[in-house]
């Protein structure tokens, strides 16, 4: 928002002539907006990356690749691995830890537990900051509204001392107060849209992970039995 300083004096004037609380509200909203947009883009990249990685891994896995090789690859490139790869690696390593001939149900149970633990961790990672976006979407209009109400209150209070009141006395105050609402909405709308979109995407990913976990445990069980 500092760019307004150089770009338009009247816009700057509207902001600078606002009362302290309104200015504070504007500052908070600008920070919130910047932060929420940062998270929006971060989550966008993360979820895109995750979907791409999941697609790749499922493709490789169901083509019949060697599980040991896949596991090794995941361990080696763990900084570039996707969530699904990590879930697979956790399950596979847990499965391999059990010596041959141990109780199959117990082995499968612990494998599933290990995968679920990683799954929970991955989902937590994927859903991180989404709650922030939801909060921004629901709260920032109210913050903006508070600034606006305060600004309008002030402009009307100053109107009381004028005997011949015209709209020109109130208009600038209301305009500068309404900027706060505009800012709040600007922060809120994309946050709400992004939250809904990312929530549905992570839900989709979660379903994919869960179904993969079930399928993998089936594959491992067959392998142990066979």
């Amino acid at each position: 928002m500092n760019t307004t300083v150089t770009q338009d004096m009247s816009f700057l004037h509207l902001i600078s002539s606002a009362s302290l609380l309104v200015q504070l509200v504007m500052l908070i909203l600008v920070m919130i907006s910047l932060l929420s947009w940062w998270y929006i883009f971060r989550k966008l990249f993360v979820i895109r990356y995750e979907i791409k990685k999941t697609d790749e891994f499922e493709d490789i896995f169901w083509r019949g690749a060697d599980m040991n090789a896949l596991y090794q690859r995941t361990i080696n490139s763990r900084y570039e691995s996707g969530s699904l790869e990590r879930i697979f690696a956790a399950g596979f390593s847990e499965f391999n830890k059990h010596p041959a001939g141990s109780d199959l149900e117990a082995v499968m149970e612990s494998t599933r537990r290990a995968m679920r633990a990683t799954y929970q961790r991955e989902m937590d990672y994927l859903e991180s900051h989404l709650s922030f976006l939801a909060t921004v979407g629901s709260v920032s209009p109210y913050i903006g509204l508070l600034g606006t109400v305060w600004g309008i209150m002030n402009s009307f209070r100053s109107l009381a001392s004028i005997t011949q009141a015209t709209i020109a006395h109130v208009a600038p105050g209301i305009a500068e107060a309404l900027i706060a609402t505009a800012m709040g909405l600007f922060a809120a709308i994309p946050a709400v849209v992004a939250y809904n979109r990312y929530a549905s995407r992570t839900d989709q990913l979660a379903t994919r992970f869960e179904s993969f976990m079930e399928e993998l445990s089936n594959v491992l069980q067959r392998r142990a039995a066979g």
């Binding site: 883009f41 990249f45 993360v46 990356y49 900084y79 990590r86 690696a89 633990a117 990683t118 990672y125």
Partner: peptide, 11 residues
Amino acid sequence: ILRNSPHSEPK
């Protein structure tokens, strides 16, 4: 290692 592996957040 997997558990502690930091998530490399892209971009």
